[in-house]
Design a protein around this nucleic acid. Sequence first.
DNA 1: CAAATTAAATGAACATTGTTCATTTATGCA
DNA 2: TGCATAAATGAACAATGTTCATTTAATTTG
Lengths: 205, 205
Amino acid sequence: MGTAERKIKEKEELRELILKSARKLFVENGVAQTTIRSIAKNIDYSIGTVYLYFKDKNAILNELHTQGFSELGRQFKVLAEVEDPMERLIAMGRIYLRFAVENPEMYELMFTLKAPMEVLNEAKDKEWNEGQSAFGVLKTTVDQCMARKHFQGHRLEPLTFMIWGLVHGMCSLHISDRANGVKLHDAAGIVQAGYEEFLKILKKL
Amino acid sequence: MGTAERKIKEKEELRELILKSARKLFVENGVAQTTIRSIAKNIDYSIGTVYLYFKDKNAILNELHTQGFSELGRQFKVLAEVEDPMERLIAMGRIYLRFAVENPEMYELMFTLKAPMEVLNEAKDKEWNEGQSAFGVLKTTVDQCMARKHFQGHRLEPLTFMIWGLVHGMCSLHISDRANGVKLHDAAGIVQAGYEEFLKILKKL
DNA sequence: CAAATTAAATGAACATTGTTCATTTATGCA
DNA sequence: TGCATAAATGAACAATGTTCATTTAATTTG
């Protein structure tokens, strides 16, 4: 069945095209400003066609949110070369920060917006795998740091959450425009500067 | 002119009524689910009346966002009694965390949602006073800690931003439903637990 | 106090959105 | 070529933010 295979491939290609278009518009104009109509228009298909490939707008958001985690994970790949877990932890934070600052719309989709998570809420027993595995990677690294006698007296899970929160919080304040009041630095600079302070603390732990 | 005064007061009262209704609906059903229509219906006025008192929906969001800062500021009042700046810093964090966990919708309005900030973007040279003064309070406390030889080798502004980010980040992850994957604790518990880890670190600085 | 003027309130109407679905068009097969 | 299936369409609906001509109420004035 050569034709059947081709059709499946074609369907997959259109699906990808929709996602690509959606993403482009998100990045250019923001998630809120991107409508199903604008996505459809962008690829010269009708509104209805988009709904043939995605249940609703949230499904698109969720898919892109997953793509975001794939990309962040890809950027994390270089960390495998870093032997020392503490160094790896530090490098991981840097990559995370850079990703957030360079891809604010994607970051919002991944860590802030409720919409992409509603897909999970609808289907019972669905879990946020992306987040859990990302958290798992961080936790493993922190655990390895602890094995080397760092973070003595700390509890693994809450400490990991705190570190995640620290990095996420600075990104989040920056992206939601709340870090503007801190004027001594350019918008993205304060995030980096804040991280440097964290590193000074890390050295002591 | 007694009548003129009364009219001004009446106008102010209806304005407050709209805000009160809006806030009630926000807290009950979430910001996204609260429409101008539902606000109007809730107080038995027409849609148009709401627009007589507020330019648009963002103006209502902005006003409530400001109310949120007033309330958080009120809760911070007890901190005046805490002499030691480090203790004060710790207590401030606790109050902040509790406020966020107890008032998630308000917190989102204050620190996450873009809409209430758009009011500022429209009018040039307007600043985010609420955020800046809140940041200022935190900065002053950190500065006093530094005067007592804590945080040696750190820079005031970036360190303050880092601490704010740390606390905000955990709240933000919790509220946006991203802390669910961390299963060993109940939803709000992980935020507290994370903060405890931060305190362990603080003791050493 | 009645008429006129001003202020306040109304809700129909519009534009924009997400979403659905009966209809049309294209495609693959006998 | 005709038929059955798949894909695509876009009109139409409901919900939303917003506007504005009209109505209603209140106040002032002669």
